[in-house]
Design a protein around this nucleic acid. Structure first.
Lengths: 256, 256
DNA sequence: GCTGTAGTTTGATATTTGTCAATGCGTTTC
DNA sequence: GAAACGCATTGACAAATATCAAACTACAGC
C-alpha cells in the first residue's frame, strides 16, 4: 500500500517559477477528495493500482495557465486545491468562459478528441492539481472495469453539465442566469463541506459575465438587484445567500 | 467474416407502429458510414468483433422519439439514415434544442452519467439508427484498444462541440449565430458527400431558434436579411449558399 | 379542387441588455 | 501615506432582440 505524507507547503518566494512540479507521488487512497474523483466500491487491489496511475502534483499560481489551447494533450488533471476557469478564444478577441472548476473536478477532457487542448485553463487562485497521464489512464481503465465506467460517467456528466449551460444561455434572462449560477456554486461548495450560503467568489464580474453570456455591468446590476430585494448580501466577492428558496423560485419562470 | 445483406426497405404502411425493430444484425464492416462511426486502422479481427457489437437497427418515423428524458439508459445509437434533434426541457415549459444529428453521428452519450437519458431525441424525418448496447460497448472497448480510444475521442469531441455552442450562445449576435449554424451544416453535409451549398433544412425556424437561443421571428428575419444581401437563397426549408466566403466573413466580427 | 393547418414572413412596438462614461472602493506599490 | 491600478457600481442612452399581431405559403386531408 502506497503511503506518502503530504509535503509541507513551502509557499516560498518562487515568483519567477509559477509552475512547479512536485516529484512526490500522491496516494489517491489517502486523499480526502477521493469520493469526488473516484468511484465508490473499488477493491483494495484496484485502489492500489489507481495509486500508481496518478502522477506528480503540480502547483499553479493565481493567474497562470495550467495549459493553453494548442498545447499537446498528454494528461488530464484533477483539481486538488484551488479554483480554475476554462475558456475558449476566437481570433477576433471574443472569449467564452466554459467552466469554473473546484476541488475534485477534472480538467482537460476536451483535449482527448484532437490530442491537443482546445481551451485554456487558468488558476483563479493559487492551486494544485494531480496529473493523470492519459495513456496510463486508458491502459488502466481497460483493466479495471469500475475505473472505466467511472471515467465514462465523468465524461458524460460533463456533456450533461454543458447541456445545462446551453439551456441557461439559450433560454434564461440575466437575473435567472445569475441565480442559476449562484445556486450551482452553492451546491458545489456544500458538496465539499463548505457553507451553502456564504462564500467568496474567485472570479471577476467580467468572468461571470463571460460564462453567463452577459456584460459585466449587467452582472453587477443583477447582483445589486438581488441585494435590494433581500435575496443576497453581496460585498465585492463575498456573497451571502439570505433567501435560498426565493432565489430558486426565480428559476421557475414567474416573471417578477 | 460477417457478411449480411441489407434488408430490403419495406417502407410499408406501419403507421400505427412508429418504432420498428429490425431483427437483422448489421455489419459495420460493410457499412458505408464506417469512416464516420469507427476508427481507421482496425485490424480485420477487430472489425469482426465490432460487427458483433452493433445490434439491431431501429426505425423511427418522423416526429417520434428515439428516447425521452427519464428513460433508462441501455444503449447508444448511431444514426444510419435520417435526421434527429435532441432537446432538454425544464418544468416551466422552456426547452433548449441541444443538437441536430445526421448520419454517422452518435446519440445518447448524455445517458451514461446517470444511467438515465437526460434529454429527448426526436426524428425530424423518417430515420434509422443502429443500436449499440452500452454494456457490450464497455466490454469490447476494454479489449480493443483502438475502439476504446475512438469512443473516448467521440465523447471528447461532443464536449468540444458544446464549447462551440456555448461560444455561439454567449458571444454572438443573431446573424452571426445563423451564419455559424449554416456553415456548420454545410460542412457536415459535405463530409457526407452532399452539396456544400444546397440543402434542405429538416428543422423548423422555431427549432433553429431554440438551438441558437433566438425566437423564430428573429431567425426568419436573419434569413431574409441574408437573402437581401445576396448571401443565400432561401425558400422555406430550401437553402442555397451563394457566397460562402462572405458568410464566413460574418463570423470574424466586422460589424457590417 | 377546397379547406384546414402548420409553418413562415413581415411590421409595429416593447423590453432587455449593451455601450459609454463617470465614480467609487480596496489593494498593492513605492 | 500617496499614488496607481484593477475591479465594481451606477446612470443615461443606444442597440438588439422579443413580443404581439396580421398576412402569407405550402402541404395534407377530404
Amino acid at each position: 500500500m502506497t503511503n506518502i505524507k503530504l509535503q509541507p507547503k513551502p509557499d516560498a518566494p518562487t515568483k519567477s517559477v509559477p509552475l512547479t512540479f512536485d516529484a512526490l507521488k500522491v496516494a489517491c487512497s489517502q486523499c480526502n477528495l477521493r469520493e469526488l474523483c473516484l468511484p465508490l466500491g473499488m477493491t483494495e487491489d484496484e485502489m492500489v493500482r489507481v495509486d500508481t496511475l496518478v502522477g506528480a502534483r503540480r502547483k499553479i499560481k493565481r493567474g497562470h495557465h495550467l495549459y493553453r489551447a494548442g498545447d499537446p494533450f498528454e494528461a488530464i488533471y484533477a483539481v486538488k486545491t484551488g479554483f480554475f476557469k476554462t475558456d475558449v478564444l476566437i481570433e477576433d478577441g471574443r472569449d467564452q468562459v466554459t467552466g469554473f472548476l473546484m476541488a475534485g473536478e477534472l480538467l482537460g477532457l476536451d483535449g482527448i478528441s484532437s490530442e491537443t487542448h482546445t481551451c485554456n485553463a487558468v488558476a483563479l487562485e493559487d492551486s494544485e492539481v494531480c496529473l493523470i497521464p492519459y495513456e496510463e489512464l486508458e491502459r488502466l481503465s481497460s483493466e479495471v472495469r469500475t475505473l472505466q465506467r467511472h471515467f465514462h460517467k465523468v465524461m458524460s456528466r460533463e456533456i450533461v453539465r454543458e447541456h445545462g449551460v446551453m439551456m441557461l444561455l439559450g433560454t434564461m434572462r440575466a437575473e435567472e442566469r445569475l441565480a442559476a449560477f449562484l445556486l450551482n456554486l452553492s451546491q458545489r461548495f456544500t458538496a465539499r463541506g463548505y457553507s451553502p450560503t456564504e462564500f467568496h467568489l474567485r472570479m471577476t464580474r467580467e468572468e461571470i459575465g463571460s460564462y453567463l453570456g452577459l456584460k459585466l455591468e449587467t452582472v453587477s446590476r443583477a447582483f445589486s438587484r438581488f441585494q435590494e430585494e433581500g435575496l443576497i448580501n453581496v460585498q465585492q466577492k463575498y456573497v451571502h445567500i439570505l433567501d435560498y428558496e426565493r432565489l430558486r423560485h426565480l428559476l421557475s419562470r414567474c416573471p417578477a
